[in-house]
Design a protein around this nucleic acid. Sequence first.
DNA 1: TCGATATGACCGCTGGGTAAGTTACCTCGT
DNA 2: ACGAGGTAACTTACCCAGCGGTCATATCGA
Lengths: 208, 208
Amino acid sequence: MATRPNAGTKGVPRAAREQEIVRVASIAFGTDGFAGTGVADVARAAGISKALVYSYFGSKEGLHAACLADAGDLLAGEIERVARDGSTGVERGVRTLAAMFAVLEDRRHVWRLLRDRTAPADGAAAEVAGRYAARIETLAHEGVLELLGDAGITDDLDVSAMVRTWLGIVDSLMDWWVAHPDEGADEMTQRVTRLIGALVSDHVRRRD
Amino acid sequence: MATRPNAGTKGVPRAAREQEIVRVASIAFGTDGFAGTGVADVARAAGISKALVYSYFGSKEGLHAACLADAGDLLAGEIERVARDGSTGVERGVRTLAAMFAVLEDRRHVWRLLRDRTAPADGAAAEVAGRYAARIETLAHEGVLELLGDAGITDDLDVSAMVRTWLGIVDSLMDWWVAHPDEGADEMTQRVTRLIGALVSDHVRRRD
DNA sequence: TCGATATGACCGCTGGGTAAGTTACCTCGT
DNA sequence: ACGAGGTAACTTACCCAGCGGTCATATCGA
C-alpha cells in the first residue's frame, strides 16, 4: 500500500484536507511571511503534492486568502465582541488583548498573518486581507478615539498615529508570546497589566 | 589620495558613487525589505549597472551590510548619546524618540532597515546587523530595566516583553512617520508627548 | 597604448504555475 | 454479483519568469 504513491489518501474528505492545508499554511505564512513561504514547503508539511494545493486554492494568493479569511473571522469576531461590552480607554485595550491571548493561545502565529508586510498589496487576496484589516483597524480607531477624546485630544493625526502605535504594541506582544511558548494566556494578560501600571506610575511620580 | 581629484575614476568619484548606491539601496531595503528588494532595481534607481554594484559590494548581502553599517552607526551613536545624558524612565524614552526623529528627519526609512524580518538570519551581513541590533537592544534593555525597577518590577520576562514592546512602539511611530511626510521631527516629538499624557491621564482617572 | 572602470549578455537556480499521466472509487449493464 | 468504463482525486515531471551572480568586452582617463 505505502509502496504505491497514491494509495490510502483518497478516503480523507476534501473539507478536512483543505482545513489541514490552511492550518499548516497559516503557520508558514505567519512565521516566514508571504514572500518567505514556498507553496512546495506548505505542501510537503501537509503531506500532499504542490499541484493539489493549486487544485484546491488556485494560486499562492488564493491559499493566502483562505488563511486570511480563517484568521480574520476569528480575530475580528473576537475584537468586536469585546467592543460591545462597553469598556473604554486603556481598560478596553487590556480586555481586547486578554481576549486575543485567550483565543490565540494555541495559534499564536495567526496575528502576524493579518499584519504581514511581505504580502502583495494588490490582487484579489489583498482585498480579502484589506477587509479584515479594515475591520480590526476600525475597532482600534474607535477605541483610540474614545481614549484620546476623554483626554481632550481630537486631532485626526494624533488619533491615526495612536492607532498605528496600538497595533504595533499588539504586534510586539504577539511576537514576544510566540518566542515564549511556555507563557499562558492568563500570564500574558497579567503581565500587560503590570507593565502598564509601571509605565503610568513612572510618569505620575515624575509629574509630582 | 585625498589631495588629488581621485585618480583613475571615470567621471564621478568612487566614494561618492558608493555613497549614492547605499543611499538608494537603504530606501529600497527599508521600504520593501531585504527579500523584496532586487539588486537590479537598486542599480537602475542609482543610474548604474547591476554589475557595478557587485564590483563595489561583492554581493547583495554585502550591499545590505554596507547599508546596515551606515544606518547602525547613525542610530546606535545617537541613542548612546541620549543614554549618557542621565534621563530615566519614560522621560528617557521620549528623549530617545526625539533624537531619532531629529536625526532621521530626511532618512525615515533607515529605522526599518535594522529591524527587517526578511533579512537572512546568518551570514556575514547578518553578523553586522546583529551587532548594531544588539547595541540598540542593550540600550533599550537598560532603559526598561530602570523604568520597571523604579516601579518594583524586576522579573526578567517582564523586562524582556517590555523591551520588545518598546521597540515595537518605535517601529510603529517610524512607519507612521514615513507615511506622513509632511510631519516634521519636532511635531512628532510633541505628538508622542501628548499621546503618552493622554494614556496616563486615562489610567489615572480610572484609578480614582 | 595601458590600466582602471563600467556594462550588456549570459548562467544557474529557485519557485510559482501547469499538463499529462496514474490511482482509487463509483456506476451501470449484464 | 461483477467487471468494464467513466470520473474525480492526486502526483510526477515539466515549463518559464525572475533573481543573484559572473565574465568578456567596451570605454574612458592618463
